[in-house]
Structure formats: C-alpha cells, structure tokens
Design a protein around this nucleic acid. Structure first.
Lengths: 239, 239
DNA sequence: CGGCAGTTTGATGTTACTCAATTTAAGTGG
DNA sequence: CCACTTAAATTGAGTAACATCAAACTGCCG
C-alpha cells in the first residue's frame, strides 16, 4: 500500500503525532511546552471504543492518525453515526467546555489518539486568542456539517444521501492529503455507511452497485474511485 | 387566548423585551448599559424572513417573543427545517463568532427580535467569563440537539420522528412557561412538521390522525394536547 | 357569498426494509 | 498448500412504509 502523503507539513510540534500541524492539536501546543505533563498519546487497534457516552473525562481528545467515528446507540440497539473523524479532528469541539458528552467514539482503523487535559486547554483559551479562533472555527464547521447532515437525511433519497456522504468525505480527505486519480482511501464497511445515512446495509450495497453500473463511482477494498464527480454532485448536492 | 405565564421573571433588563431574563440576551446585558446604542428591537409579522443564508450581518440575533425557525433551502426547492426558535433563543450560537451563516431564519408567528452588535458581544466575551459560560452552554445544547435530530431522522420511522419532535418541543416549552393540563401552545402548520422531520405533509396528517385515534396526542388549532406521554416517549425516545 | 390555505381521505406507485440464500474475501490451523 | 471458519458483500423475492396524485372537506377572511 502506498504511503500517505500529508498536505501540510509544518514543524511537527509533537514527535509522537505526525498530524498535529493541522487542526486543533497544533494550535494549542507551544514551543516551550514540556508537553509530556499534560498531553498523552495512545495507540489503539481498529474497532475499539475510544470514548463512552455520558462518562466524564478530564481529557479533550484529538485524532492524530487513522479514522474514527462519533455515534449514539439507540434503545432498540440501532446505531446512528454522527460523523467520521479524520486525522487532526477534535472528537468534538464541545468537549473542550463540557466534560460529559452524549455520544460515543470508536476507532474505525487502528488510530493514534492524543488526550490533552481540559483545564490546561481552557487556561490557554483565556491566554491565547489564537486558540479561541481555532476552536471557534472548528465549532462553526461542526455546526455546519451537522446542519448539512440533517438536510441530507431529511430531504434526500437513499442515492442522494450516499452520494452526499461520499462527496463530503472526499472533500475532507482532499483537504488533508494529496489525491491521485480520483482515488480516495475510505476504510468504511457498508455497515458504517448504512448507520451514517440511515439505510440498511443491504440497501447500501444495492445503491453502490447502481453507482458502479452507471459508471459514477466504485467503492471497494477500502478505496473509493470516482468516475463522474459531476453525476455524484447532481445526486448529492445540498446547495 | 390566555396570557402566557413566563416561568422566570427576574428583573427585566430591557424594557422592550419581556424574555431577556432567560437565555443569552439577559446574560450579555448589564445594568449600566445604555443599550440603545448597540442593541435594537424589531417587531416582525408572521411568515417574514428574518435572516438570509450566506448574507453577512453585523448583528447577533435573539428571539424575544414568538416562534421562528432556522432552515436551509435545497436546490430542488425542498426545505429542511433545522430547528425551531423559542423566546430566549439565539438564532445560532455560531453567529456570535461568524458573521456569515449558511442557514435562513423565518418568523413562524409574529415575533420580537433583538439584534446586538457582534463586536460588542465579543468585547463582553473577553471581559466577562459569565458570558462565555452562557455561550458555551447554548453551544453545547445546540450541538446535542443537532445530534439528536440526526439520530431521529436516521433511525426512526415517521411515527417515531414526529413523536420525537413533539416531545422535544414539549420539553422546551415546559422549560419556559407553566403548562396546564398537558396542553402546549404549538403554532406549527403540518407543513412545518413535515419539513422538520423529512416527511410529506400528507403523511404527517396521517400520523397525527393515528396519534389522535390511539388517544396519544391531539395537535390542532395550534395546541398540542398530550394524553399518553408514556406512549409518546415509547415511540420517540432516543435514549 | 366566493376564494384560499390547510387538512383529510382514497387510490396507486415507488422506495426501502426484511428475510433468506449465495457468493466473495480473508483469515487460521493443520 | 489446502480444508475450514467467519465476516462482508451480493442477489432475489415478498412486504411495509412512505410518496404522489387527486379529490373532497374545513375554517377563515374579504
């Protein structure tokens, strides 16, 4: 498998974490920090739960490498995936200010997670306006993404929802890594797509087959290849 | 029509706005303010657009009385209602830090809207930690509400989604006003429910008929009467 | 009284779910 | 290297949920 090319390669602020030049992690850390005191890294295998709903945690988490997802479990056992986490993502911006959250987080691939103590980050918030700006930005992006997901789930057909999800992930991947030949690494099972867009895995399989047959896109073996991004946008655009 | 009883009746900080003791408006204002300089009120009739998507505004808006809703318009003309706004609600917490938002806002009833200059609020943010706390709180609540809506749209049937919406609105109303005999003022047309939960108005009508026939709840003439809140919770609970 | 927006009801079509069987892919241990 | 196992994906057939279209019916207002 080809080595990932990361798009941004500023000075690595943290030896253990190749991605903290982007997103929140990089903004909070400062050169003079002896970080070991209040920041720690974990490497976690695929499939493991990283955070449990309704449990207080003193840490704010950032995904440094690999993929994860944020979800809620419903009483009937079904699961709604709220969003996917890519390298550089905060689990949730609200976790900076609230120690208890209503969702759980799971590792999709093997991941590297950074945990930073909430009180230290909040101290930084008042001291450093740049940190506030970064937090505000990721907050605004999260809110807009949530609203888009609501619109996709509420107004789009199955094809539309899946097209929207693929486009959304494509854009996020493209913002982080260099993409060659419209091929995007997408380590999702059809079950994850199903739980994200509110369809059954069986139906997801059928829709993806249609996309393949029509020559729009092919998702298999963890790679999404897009042939007609125009067609995909026609199906899954919200604006 | 009976006069609304408001639950919280602290000192009114703003003569024009009966509700700014609750929510954001009250927290930002301070006694010594000569508010007229940077805060203004509008009274707007039902149905009017209060904010247009993608247009910059120097103001942060709070709904002081009446109902409104936040929505996006899709290219095919369909509309997704993202949430309903009740007295005391910020249009959106993110509008405090971003001058351009991706959604529109409309008045559902006649409303009273307060607009406060963003720069003044941001000045308050750095000066007064209590304001930060209030903002953080409404931010966290908004994020949780969005996640709940995603879960409802993704995992629930039509009956479940409508039950969830009714319960959600009941709780929000009960937090603001005293409720007598399980009767909640709900100035929504079935079209609004449809656009919020992603069903057609026709289907909403059928589901509400079912709720009536089963003796669960009756929504008509702008009033929701709940007979079996247990049954409603069984249908529409997410946790 | 007529007009209009909202709601209700019926008939029919489409989308997506369920259940079940089959195929594919990826291990794992002999 | 090959049987055996297991998770994932695919395919088909039948069904349930929801949309669409169209026609009444309601309340309200001028």
């Amino acid at each position: 498998m080809a080595k990932q090319e990361t798009k941004m390669s500023g000075p690595s602020l943290c030896a253990a974490c190749p991605n903290n030049g982007i997103g929140f992690c990089g903004a909070v850390l400062e050169e003079e920090d002896t970080r070991a005191e209040w920041q720690h890294h974990r490497i976690v295998p695929a499939g493991k739960q990283l955070l449990n709903a309704d449990q207080a945690s003193p840490d704010v988490h950032v995904l440094c490498s690999g993929w994860g997802f944020r979800f809620v479990q419903l009483p009937d056992g079904s699961r709604q995936i709220l969003n996917f986490l890519l390298p550089g993502d905060l689990f949730s911006a609200s976790s900076v200010l609230e120690e208890r959250v209503h969702f759980s987080v799971k590792a999709l691939t093997a991941v590297q997670v950074s945990g930073m103590r909430r009180d230290r980050i909040r101290a930084r918030l008042s001291a450093n306006p740049a940190v506030v700006a970064v937090l505000a930005k990721s907050w605004a992006v999260e809110a807009e993404n949530s609203d888009n997901m609501i619109a996709a789930l509420g107004q789009c057909s199955g094809e539309g929802r899946i097209a929207w999800l693929l486009l959304h992930l494509m854009r996020r991947i493209a913002a982080r890594t260099v993409v060659h030949g419209q091929r995007y690494p997408l380590p999702l099972r059809q079950r994850h797509i199903a739980d994200a867009v509110g369809l059954t895995p069986v139906h997801v399989s059928r829709v993806l087959s249609v996309f393949r047959d029509r020559g729009i896109a092919d998702l298999s073996n963890g790679v999404l290849e897009v042939f007609g991004s125009g067609e995909l946008e026609r199906l899954g655009s919200l604006h």
